[in-house]
Amino acid sequence: MSLVGPGAGQSCRLAVRLAQTEVDLLAAQRLRYRVFIEEMGGSGTLVDHDARLERDRFDTIFDHLLLIDEGRDAAQFDHVVGAYRLLPDTRLTHTDRFYCDDEFDLSRLRASGRRLLELGRSCIDPLYRGGTGMLQLWQGLAQYVIRHDIEILFGAASFHGDDPQRWAQSLGWLHHHHLAPAEIRVRARQENGFSPMAADLLDRRTALMQMPSLIRAYLRLGGGIGEGVYLDPEFRTTDVCIILDTARMSAQAREFAARSGDGGSLL
């Protein structure tokens, strides 16, 4: 697919595929550093500030879904302009943990007996936001879900900053209107004093305007959230757990996923 280059009026070529080489992974970690560390002010125990890489111990077991600008130089680690981290439950042994295990009690998801996929580290280069890049990543994700027979997608989704009261309207709206079904609902492990705003004090317009666009997108697909929030001291975010049961997706979303999976061989 040929697209207009971001801000430059020049043609470029975007492609979506899984990371194939160490260079791909390093480029994804470089993008994550620009977004999560430089832009959002986060940190982490394995962040390499000298090499400008955001990484952690989970990177080696995740699949990395990448948005590639084929006109940029891979040798400079700048060809990756979007990324998603994917971990199917079939890759874990009985002793392995999901990334979200540190933040949320996932026992109900595990007990469901259904095929799980953890999502994380979703980011896109600022120059490529507002275009078709995120849509292309989602199309790649849909292909992955179909090919791996995934039934439930989940992962931490973040509000900027670690003061949940700043996002009281959005968090209250999510709690009162979008809790995941009880049988797969997770719960935050952290005792942080968070209490959702009373339902009669909520303003829908304000709540949705303040909500990150990625979370709104999950809701449109039929997603819900777990109970409580986790305040991440490293990334300085307020995290909720998004849970998307593919059996509850809207007909429109199902059609989109089916179209995305037709005949493709990206993944």
Rank of each mutant, 00 (worst) to 15 (best):
R248S: 06
R34N: 05
R205E: 15
D232G: 08
L117M: 10
H49L: 01
L202Y: 12
N192M: 01
A180F: 07
C123N: 09
S195C: 09
H49E: 04
D69Y: 02
S213Y: 10
S265H: 14
D50F: 02
G120W: 14
D163C: 08
T45H: 12
V16D: 03
L14I: 11
D245E: 12
G223Y: 00
T95Y: 13
D200M: 07
E22G: 07
T45R: 15
C12A: 10
D89T: 11
E38N: 11
L26Y: 13
F77N: 05
D125L: 09
D149F: 12
F235K: 00
I225R: 02
V240W: 07
R34H: 11
G130V: 02
L106I: 00
G222F: 12
E234A: 14
Q210T: 11
R115E: 11
F159W: 03
L66F: 13
R72N: 07
Q210Y: 01
T90D: 02
P6V: 13
A157N: 07
L141A: 11
C241D: 01
C100G: 08
A142W: 14
D101Y: 02
A75N: 14
T206A: 14
G223P: 00
Q10S: 14
R72A: 09
D162F: 03
S170Y: 07
Y33Q: 03
D239V: 03
W138R: 08
R85K: 05
I68F: 04
